[in-house]
Amino acid sequence: MEYVDSLTGFRLDGRRPTDMRQIRGEIGVVPKADGSALFEMGNTKVIAAIYGPREVQNKSQQVNNQALVRCEYSMANFSTGDRARRPKGDRRSTEISLVIRQTMEACILTHLMPRSQIDIFVQVLQADGGTRSACINAATLALADAGIPMCDIVTSCSAGYLSSTPLLDLNYIEDSAGGPDVTVGILAKMDKVTLLQMDAKLPLDIFENVMQLAIEGCKAIAQYIRGVLLENTKQLEYRKGV
């Protein structure tokens, strides 16, 4: 199958190889939580809720010099076209939970909150490729909403390599083509990579191009997220009447 039209250079959904899908972020969608956010990348839609910092529930897990970060990733039963029961804690979601936890832990200033616990819940409402990235982006927004101290904002984006072209932000059809899929997470301002995942083989020079493209994507997302946060802060200011 041709994932990039050789005559027009468009992808199946009308994007060019370096185009991202439409993104949208919203803060404060779960009032009960300490912080929450919704993040959309095209048809992928995820929701994140943060509880904490709060007392550690299971005392045996308590860490005395820093906060305990926990993460739970799940997919809603209705998130894909066919309604399937998803067992909790299957391999895939355990792995993604771990990835998200590690990525977020890298930017949270955990040493400021010893003997406490931060829970990150992310749920996929609609899946169309790139859920991992969308979850990280949503979690960043929600953590900021919860007012948890972070050294920088983490953003993530994926890029792939199909029809001999590096493609930014794969959707489900492109993702299931079986080509390499590189997910990158960066600390936007510090320009540091906190997440890099790929489970295929790519020649080194091509890999660098693909990774560079994903980093560009991350930076664009970071800019957008900063805008959303700024807007949100302005709202808060306005409400407080400062």
């Binding site: 959904d13 009308g14 994007r15 899908r21 439409q22 095209g42 076209g81 169309d128 959707n171 059809i173």
Partner: peptide, 9 residues
């Protein structure tokens, strides 16, 4: 199954 795809203009 119902398939929903994005179509960018």
């Amino acid at each position: 199954v119902k398939v929903v795809r994005e179509h960018y203009l």
